[in-house]
């Protein structure tokens, strides 16, 4: 009896083209969304320049970014705020989780110490030690 030497098998294949399409669309969506969110949250300020900026530290979970414009206005999270509101934000963040709070001051180089001092004072009073100024590297 002659046994069949080859069995004809039907190949099963998935059409993954549509899956890849959707995955790429999702990647593009998240890339665009994160880009837009990041650029909208940052108010344009002329940051001070220093010669040797340190690399960015690891981001803490509770980072408060206070932007101080040249016209002395303060912005947090895209909203214009007053000093008591900034103090309240720092206080509530420090009560939530003191060790993880970080205050980042994005101050225009033309803003004065008059606006910065109360923020530093509030941080010290509420026990927030991680404070940093946003700077740009000085082009040589």
């Amino acid at each position: 009896m002659k046994a069949p030497s080859m069995t004809r098998s039907r190949s099963v294949s998935f059409n993954v083209t549509s899956l890849i399409d959707i995955v790429f669309l999702l990647i593009i969506f998240f890339l665009v969304a994160s880009h837009v969110v990041r650029s909208e949250a940052v108010e344009p300020v002329d940051l001070p320049k220093i010669s040797d900026p340190a690399g960015d530290e690891e981001e803490s979970a509770l980072r408060i970014v206070v932007t101080v414009m040249a016209d002395r206005s303060m912005w947090v999270g895209g909203r214009e705020v007053l000093l008591p509101q900034v103090e309240q934000l720092i206080l509530s963040a420090s009560q939530e989780s003191l060790n993880q709070v970080e205050v980042r001051i994005r101050a225009d180089h033309a803003a004065t110490y008059l606006e910065i001092e109360p923020i530093l004072l509030a941080c010290a009073q509420f026990g927030v030690t991680r404070v940093g100024f946003a700077v740009l590297p000085k082009s040589s």
Binding site: L31, H35, P53, R106, R130, V131, F133, A134
Partner: peptide, 23 residues
């Protein structure tokens, strides 16, 4: 995205550790 990110200068942080607690 490569072209869009070229024009952006990355901001750095000048760490300013403060003394904790009551001043």
């Amino acid at each position: 995205f490569v072209c869009a990110s070229i024009g952006q200068i990355p901001e750095s942080t000048l760490p300013t550790p403060l003394a904790a607690g009551s001043i």
